[in-house]
Design a protein around this nucleic acid. Structure first.
Lengths: 232, 232
DNA sequence: TAGTGGTCTAGACCACCCC
DNA sequence: GGGTGGTCTAGACCACTAA
């Protein structure tokens, strides 16, 4: 007797395909939730969830009273998964290897202090390390850890476990800022990465806070040819 | 008489702060939806929505029967907003200017054909263009448009409107693939971007499909020093 | 000010999967 | 097998904002 339930995913794909096939062109207002609910034979809540996800994904714009419109310039969002480097390397089938290059207790340099919003010369652990995929030099990492937030880091040698894995298992964090850029390899980094001097290196910088307290800053230089990819 | 309603956002922030303050450590299982609903004095649906968003954001893992756990290694996701380049430039207060460098009707080269999954030598429009922020050379763009999917492009000179803006207002698309890397500037690109030869350039490549049909491929080389940033 | 989306509720059934 | 999350419903009230 009872017809099969309509899922919010059904509604979502239906709406998406109508956008793609041009039934609802960019800029057009699509029918209201109640109307769609009647058409699809489901509750308004179900339509609401479908449209809300499409709005999250940047496909449509929704405003009260104005209704739901197909976006003209899709300010779409890309989602990247930021895996642990070990995971990323092992996913390719290669063996992961970590090596500590240098470890110092050092005062925070002015530039970094400004970025983190702390005092210049605050005590920090400063690490240089390498990550390998089999024999290939995969990533050079320059890492600073704030000893005021993470005093335990002072006693950790970081010769076996890499700083990221050590941190995630010990220190919770609330905010992350990521930034990506390109850097010409300096002589020493080029050497570590077995790359020609001046090679263009894909560069990621990550700053982490726990509430208002900065935890760590890492600058990661990838081997030449590295690519970060996503399917949106 | 009636207490103020508890919002799913209230629940979400409460749960988040308990994770951050260590009440629920990484790896720990947090109480079930019913229990939390009782504690917060709201419906289970409300708790469900809060936890579902946290799962979306990669903060917790949820499995039927197993319950909800705080993630140990936060395979966190970063969301980038990919704006139109005009918007990105104008947001900085600079004036946006577009210039067409070259326009050809050309057969699809083998490498690109392979990436797009179409025949080598399929007819395409091939454009080179520049985007400026005030006087600063901001981005060099190398763009291919598939004439089999977008035949109208053959008649468009692209001398006034940039290819991206022309496309988004005309051709819907269903899938995008983005990839980021770093490139050493070739002599000609260095010239266009007023950058030293061999400069490391942040590079974005975008491929767009409409269902199974490739629409366009763009390779965008940013001026030296460009940075893509996100707050997660 | 009226119409649209935003959200909450209470209840229900289902699917999955660890024990 | 039974407990947990996943989802749908029907109804309600609210908040925002375009007209």
């Amino acid at each position: 007797m009872s017809p099969p339930k309509v899922s919010y995913l059904d509604v979502k794909t239906q709406v998406l395909s109508r956008i793609h096939d041009g039934t609802w062109a960019p800029g057009a207002t699509i029918p209201g939730e109640v109307e769609l609910a009647t058409e699809f034979g489901c509750a308004r809540t179900t339509v609401n969830r479908a449209l809300q996800e499409l709005a999250d994904e940047g496909i449509v714009d929704r405003r009260r009273k104005a209704g739901t419109r197909v976006k003209t310039s899709p300010t779409r969002q890309a989602r990247f998964t930021i895996p642990l480097i070990r995971t990323e390397i092992e996913a390719t089938g290669a063996a992961y290897r970590y090596a500590l290059v240098d470890r110092q207790i050092a005062p925070c340099p002015p530039g970094l202090a400004a970025q983190l919003g702390i005092e210049t010369n605050s005590p920090m652990v400063h690490l240089s390390c390498m990550h390998y995929a089999d024999a290939l030099a995969f990533q050079y990492e320059d890492r600073w850890i704030n000893l005021e937030t993470v005093p335990e880091a002072k006693a950790e040698p970081f010769d076996v476990i890499n700083p990221n894995e050590w941190l995630v298992s010990r220190v919770p964090f609330s905010d992350v800022e990521l930034s990506f850029s390109a850097t010409n390899a300096s002589a020493s980094v080029a050497d570590f990465l077995s790359a020609p001097d001046g090679s263009a290196l894909f560069t990621a910088e990550r700053t982490t806070w726990l509430q208002a307290r900065p935890v760590t800053f890492a600058r990661m230089l990838f081997h030449p040819g590295y690519r970060m990819t996503t399917l949106v």
